[in-house]
Design a protein around this nucleic acid. Sequence first.
DNA 1: TTCTGTCATTGGAGCGTTCCAAGACATTAA
DNA 2: TTAATGTCTTGGAACGCTCCAATGACAGAA
Lengths: 344, 344
Amino acid sequence: MHAHSSPRIGHGSAVTLEMVAARAGVGRQTVSNAINSPELLRPQTLERVRRAIDELGYRPHRAAQALKTRASRLIGYGIRSSSTGVPTPVLDQFLHSLSEAADRAGYRVVLFAVAPGDDGLTRYQQLLDEHGADGFVLSGTDRGDRRQAWLHERGVPFVAFGRTWSGKDVGDWVDVDGAAGTSAAVRHLAGLGHRRIGFLGWPKGSGVGDDRARGWQSAMRELGLSTRGRRMESPDDPERATEAAEKLLAGGATAVVAASDTLALGWYQALRRAGRTPGPEAAVIGFDDSPIAPLLFPSLSSLAQPLDAVGRVCMQLLLERLGDRGRPVEHVLLEPELVLRESA
Amino acid sequence: MHAHSSPRIGHGSAVTLEMVAARAGVGRQTVSNAINSPELLRPQTLERVRRAIDELGYRPHRAAQALKTRASRLIGYGIRSSSTGVPTPVLDQFLHSLSEAADRAGYRVVLFAVAPGDDGLTRYQQLLDEHGADGFVLSGTDRGDRRQAWLHERGVPFVAFGRTWSGKDVGDWVDVDGAAGTSAAVRHLAGLGHRRIGFLGWPKGSGVGDDRARGWQSAMRELGLSTRGRRMESPDDPERATEAAEKLLAGGATAVVAASDTLALGWYQALRRAGRTPGPEAAVIGFDDSPIAPLLFPSLSSLAQPLDAVGRVCMQLLLERLGDRGRPVEHVLLEPELVLRESA
DNA sequence: TTCTGTCATTGGAGCGTTCCAAGACATTAA
DNA sequence: TTAATGTCTTGGAACGCTCCAATGACAGAA
């Protein structure tokens, strides 16, 4: 960027290459080169052109660039409604870091709505046909998700936030290592002296949920602790979660690792019904570190997903893929962070 | 849309108007008209062209359209990080309904990251210069926000989710009537028999917060109830909120309306410290109906913002503005919905 | 002086669409 | 039959950019 005292002259409305060229006293293509291949210009010319660009406040017209280069510099992100209860967690933070990383590389994220039930393949098709996106970021992938295979077949660049849980493992992905997280939680609780550590998970069959259960199980095994009767299942529903937690409590568990903060709340409620309260004697660690975790009484320890990093790495992989479609597939697993509060 | 049994032939990769025209045996422009001004074609020709479009899976190249028509059919949305603690609540649902409404009109939402501290005017400037968006949706507007005036001066179409709290009221906006919400909450509590109804709000000076306080105050006045010493302030912080709630409790309040669910939790905690629990004797109604509201013990009554409607109406106003820049400014206030649960 | 090679710079062409003015055709009136 | 009218259809031109092949400038060699 150029520091210069005079303000921009143009209104940013209709400055074209040609106008910049005229002002700098060079040809149209020279201005284009000054932007895209500055090494081709003589330093003196480059300087002159850059000054003209600054003075006029010139920016390339993206549609014209896109038409010529056949690249929109737009990344598609299919957004589902969260009202279905499907966890689309902390979309907020993820989208922010995604956009930020995209912006830095001259790309931008474009949203398109996908109906809750549908996998939205026709929406992806549409965007591609319109040349409305060069690649995609997927999220909320789970077993039976057809999108990866579909995009792969067509040679469309994409990255998924979330592993390919079933079928062939096609395409790049970034994910949070849920198992590592729950393992760390178990080890922390064991370090506090707990031996009868339960797991409060979702019903088997979801990729994410099973992964989190696996981490608990393997850490328990490593520590030589029994897992028999220590695993209870419940959907993300307060009442059911409480019942599941009560069973764990009845089984003698003194601590619990939960697959979600909602499930962890079941433990809170189960204890309350028993006239007790979460803490050293009845510890619990949740998952996702939702905004309420610090607000609870007592505040809830939880595994925080590094969403900033996930967004950043997603975009990085996608950009690399856009640059070289033949490169080998890449997978990145990021560790969640154990945020300790009063509940453990 | 056409129902037809044969699958698409094209790969959706490079079907152009010219190709469709050749297949239909018509001129290039006729195909364009079939899409943009079908009434110009003879029904028979239209049918033939439509079939060709379907068979080839043709979709107009958005960049080419944008270049010619000077409209990108993209709506910019500057996304801030939420890590600053500034409430950008339920972004998720809002963005979804926004995208959906945009999609229906052939538009799409494009994100760009804005640094937390900055108002990001240069990012808006950039998008405009690049012809990367035809208009903007703003959110998180508050006192001293320069964006509205800036966009207005330049004649850029935009809608704000959130009133213009200071300065001249330029531009369209959609907002949730916080005052109406807190008024309704007060009336509900009064209907339950409460007379000493407190308000737990944010420190004065925020547009949104003051509005919510106003609603409580006016409803109290209408009901002939005293507000003296019944209003306490706290930022969205558990400890501070609890202290504020304790003061209300000490003042004899039997019920509370809170400016946020976080503040409502302060009431929960204050009661707990006093060995009590929220309910008929010590009611509370929060604001925003965050995902945790139903998960609390007891579950929290709260005022839900109609975010689906907000997104839909925002896009509607913006599209109308895009269609006619001279039309008078429009404002829409939507009522929040009182979601009753155990706490009230 | 002329030739060759290198480097910096340039204008034509074209990406796929829509605007526009004009063409083709059928129908009716003179 | 010709002219006038209206309806439907058409190809050229242009939007702003980048690719490409070609041009000009200039230094060194013949």
